[in-house]
């Protein structure tokens, strides 16, 4: 299982390295989103600094949708789905591998976005360990749930429109918890953020386990 996951993740990251879709399209989009928030909300009244946690995670959420779509567009091209089913790869390995590749890309996005929030919104980091832990736990949850719902929509003609309606409500708890934890880490009291971070870890664990078990069904039957 882990060998297959490593093979899959390596392949996905190699494709990203060659195609640069995340770095040249999704990343600029992420930066653009936080700039647009700044234009929509009055930058002088301190709204941005107060709302920076929420805006950060909204931007991450939108970018993760794009990253997930991209991850399954790769497989949909030229019968990749059938090839995956015929490959003999362990479905659990495929799930973990794809989730890991998405997570790596999301982490890179979050680092850039975090710098953007600090520089552009003037957010102040007070709890760095909490910030880091929140990013890791939330990313694991986003990648796990995203991979699970991403493969659902992957074989369908309407995937661009179906994925958001299926995935975003599911990710609402991640948005809530990650934003609360970030508020605590950005100028708040860090201790208040840790329980939220725990919730994120629980969410990630749940979806990782469920995805590992259920991915075979999804890959086989759709």
């Amino acid at each position: 299982m882990f060998r297959d996951a490593a093979l899959m993740a390596g392949k996905d990251l190699r494709i990203e390295w060659r195609s640069r879709v995340t770095t040249q399209q999704i990343l600029p989009f992420a930066v653009l989103v936080i700039l647009l928030f700044g234009m929509a909300l009055d930058p002088d009244r301190g709204i941005l600094a107060r709302a920076s946690s929420g805006l950060f995670w909204i931007a991450v959420l939108f970018c993760s949708l794009l990253a997930i779509q991209r991850a399954f567009t790769i497989e949909a091209a030229d019968g990749g789905r059938d090839a995956l089913r015929l490959s003999g790869l362990d479905p659990a390995g495929v799930f973990l591998g794809k989730a890991a590749a998405i997570a790596v890309q999301l982490i890179a996005l979050e680092i850039v976005l975090a710098m953007g929030v600090v520089i552009i919104y003037g957010a102040r980091i007070t709890g760095f360990p909490l910030l880091l832990a929140t990013c890791l736990a939330a990313t694991a949850g986003l990648a796990a749930a995203g991979t699970l719902y991403g493969v659902l929509a992957a074989g369908l003609r309407v995937r661009e429109t179906l994925l958001p309606i299926l995935l975003l409500p599911v990710l609402a708890p991640v948005l809530i918890a990650a934003t609360r934890a970030f508020e605590a880490a950005l100028g708040g009291v860090a201790v208040e953020g840790w329980p939220w971070c725990g919730l994120l870890a629980m969410f990630a664990l749940l979806y990782l386990i469920f995805g590992t078990l259920a991915f075979g069904t999804l890959l086989e039957e759709s």
Binding site: L152, P173, I176, F203, L206, E220, E221, S222
Partner: peptide, 30 residues
């Protein structure tokens, strides 16, 4: 053929409602 797609989403329906409810509850109670 129609398979596991809907079944997996259906299976996650109630757990998701619970997770959402729990997190919203916690959030608002604070």
């Amino acid at each position: 053929q129609r398979g596991g797609r809907s079944a997996v989403v259906g299976l996650l329906l109630f757990p998701n409602v619970l997770i959402v409810h729990f997190s919203v509850d916690w959030w608002r109670s604070l």
